[in-house]
């Protein structure tokens, strides 16, 4: 089955700035793919290349089986895009804008449009100048979800939405997945990514640094374990992947590389476990590790 999005070795420069430096991205059909990275890492540039707004300097890009630059018009029939900062025309109503984007995407479903307007509690008769930021965002979201696109590209789509509307947004994305549509979601709201995304790609400085399911990514980081034992611990320090080991009598706390946790647990149960708490790495820890500037990992250099 053809991938929804395939990007390999993508380069794009603006003058002397290398915005994208060999970026790779694979999005399978029907998945919700999180697209993450610190500010200025090249997420929006990548999205603009995927939309055929920018021409790639080097590398190959396929979207829904087509070339996003050459087949832009035909591809856009099947793509809906929501930017993070929606600007509307001052003297057009929200409803007019929704229908305009519907026409530009090859039609939208009137029933779903009505349903979405209601769910997002949007007043479509207000003019562009009188919408708040969150409401401008809703206009673009309704237009995107009401269209019959196969691929939704959402660039920080929930900025400015209240928590209630954020919930509506999540259920809409879940609905899209159930209908078999593909979603590329760029977001800084980690709980949103965690609850919605099947897989994520993390980019930094125009390059992909990690791709996989959240479980796979978690695997790459450490889990903290605290245990109360029946007897003093035995040989924990020699196990591979154990860090920050602290022993106070029968009390043990340590961090362990998540893929080495099995051996640690065996060793602990060997001493008899009275109580155990194990905390998986939070998403924040996960991303802070990946977002940190190059060189920070080595610790000593900074």
């Amino acid at each position: 089955m053809t991938k929804a999005i395939t990007v390999s070795g993508l380069h794009k420069s603006f003058g002397r700035t290398h915005a994208l430096d060999g970026l790779d991205l694979d999005v399978a059909p029907g998945e919700v793919h999180g697209f993450l990275g610190p500010n200025g890492s090249g997420k929006s540039t990548t999205i603009r290349v995927l939309l055929g707004l920018l021409r790639a300097d080097a590398g190959s890009v396929r979207v829904l089986g087509g070339d996003p630059w050459h087949d832009a018009v035909e591809l856009h029939r099947r793509i809906a895009y929501v930017p993070g900062d929606v600007t509307l025309w001052r003297n057009l109503s929200g409803g007019e804008v929704i229908d305009l984007f519907g026409r530009l995407r090859g039609g939208l479903d009137p029933a779903r449009r009505a349903e979405l307007v209601e769910r997002f509690e949007l007043d479509p008769t207000k003019k562009g100048r009188s919408y708040s930021k969150g409401n401008r965002q809703k206009v673009a979201l309704v237009a995107a979800f009401a269209s019959d696109a196969d691929l939704l590209i959402l660039d920080e789509p929930t900025s400015g939405l209240d928590p209630l509307m954020e919930g509506v947004f999540r259920s809409c994305v879940a609905g899209e997945r159930e209908r078999g549509r593909t979603v590329l979601l760029s977001s800084h709201i980690l709980s949103e990514v965690e609850s919605l995304c099947d897989r994520v790609s993390i980019i930094r400085q125009g390059r992909t640094v990690e791709t996989g399911t959240l479980a796979e990514l978690r695997h790459l980081t450490r889990t903290s374990v605290t245990a109360e034992l029946a007897a003093p611990p035995n040989g924990l320090a020699q196990l591979p992947g154990v860090h920050d080991l602290r022993v106070q009598g029968h009390r043990v706390s340590l961090q362990v590389d998540t893929d080495k946790i099995d051996a640690v647990l065996r060793s602990l149960t060997g001493s008899g476990v009275r109580s155990l708490t194990s905390t998986p790495p939070t998403l924040e820890e996960l991303f802070l590790r990946h977002y940190a500037p190059a060189g920070a990992d080595e610790g000593a250099s900074r």
């Binding site: 829904l64 089986g65 087509g66 050459h70 087949d71 832009a72 018009v73 035909e74 591809l75 029939r77 099947r78 229908d99 519907g102 026409r103 530009l104 090859g106 039609g107 939208l108 479903d109 009137p110 779903r112 019959d148 196969d150």
Partner: peptide
């Protein structure tokens, strides 16, 4: 307004062709 059915009926298997530089004017 175009009904949704006509959109999904559009052939999506064949790779699309052509720039159509004036589409949407």
């Amino acid at each position: 307004m175009t009904p949704a059915a006509s959109v999904t009926a559009a052939p999506s298997a064949a790779p699309p062709r052509g720039h159509r530089p004036y589409a949407g004017t």
